[in-house]
């Protein structure tokens, strides 16, 4: 029996789901090993239960809370996919602003027409078994996890900094080019793709477990960034993880 696989999207950009359709070379092989039984973005069918449910996007409304409970109840393994689902991602930035004022500015007197909650990762509401990090989730990383699941192996874990992969790739350190970068505290597994293209790391895969927030702040301020700016930069994809 091929495992029954489903894909679901919550509050997010659907970029992680799209990234799966971007496996143009591998898609037909992937389909040979699993039965995709539900994937609203591309198919009409729905199913009652799932061996593996991949969930993209975060929780941001009462309807999301209800729906993820229902999916969890019917899933053997639940995988959070992408930054919004894993740690709140960019959605959680709104939590650091007075949301009532924003609602009023957007919807005016209709501000209570649409129920909204602070943005939360999936794990804030139900148990998450496995995760694929990143914004967007990296395709090689997804394939590794997917293969491990299908063949009953242990998926890889990454708990080292982006700097490690950057050094392995022999990239020039962006601090030497006048930029500032969150590589020293950000979780790797992305092959340091952004610094590899000359762009600073934004920490989209979250931070390493034992990250030294104070030391990162010091590196940034030593490179001319104000403390306020430095903290803002660190919250970009990690509003739920930064204590400052």
């Amino acid at each position: 029996m091929k495992p029954k696989v489903a894909f679901f999207d919550f509050t997010g950009c659907e970029g992680c789901q799209l990234n799966k359709l971007n496996f143009e070379n591998e898609l037909l092989d992937i389909l040979a090993h699993v039965d995709i039984v539900e994937f609203r973005e591309v198919m009409d069918e729905r199913a009652d239960s799932y061996d593996i449910a991949f969930v993209e996007g975060g929780i941001s409304s009462p309807a999301c809370v209800e729906r993820i409970h229902d999916i969890r109840r019917r899933s053997k393994i639940l995988v959070a996919m992408g930054a919004c689902a894993v740690n709140g991602g960019i959605n959680a930035l709104k939590n650091r602003q007075p949301i009532d004022a924003v609602r009023e500015a957007v919807y005016g007197e209709d501000k209570y027409l649409f129920a909204t909650l602070p943005a939360m990762p999936i794990s804030a509401v139900v148990k998450v078994d496995l995760e694929v990090r990143g914004c967007p989730m990296s395709q090689p990383d997804f394939l590794k996890l997917f293969k491990a699941l299908v063949f009953g192996k242990q998926p890889p874990k990454y708990d080292y900094a982006v700097c490690v992969e950057c050094k392995l790739n022999e990239n020039e350190c962006l601090f030497n080019t006048g930029q500032v970068c969150l590589g020293p505290i950000s979780r790797g597994g992305c092959e340091a793709i952004c610094p590899g293209f000359g762009q600073f790391c934004t920490g989209c895969r979250g931070f390493v477990e034992d990250m030294n927030e104070a030391a990162m702040l010091k590196i940034l301020t030593d490179h001319g960034v104000s403390r306020d700016e430095a903290r803002k930069q660190m919250t970009l994809f990690n509003a739920t993880e930064v204590s400052v």
Binding site: T11, S60, S61, A63, C64, I90, N91, L93, K94, R96, Q97, I99, V102, R103, A105, V106, F114, T116, A119, E229, K232, Q233, L236
Partner: peptide
Amino acid sequence: VEPPRFFEAMLKGRKFTE
């Protein structure tokens, strides 16, 4: 029925490079 994400709140105070 998609939940609103309030990007305006995310953009507030952000630098032009972000």
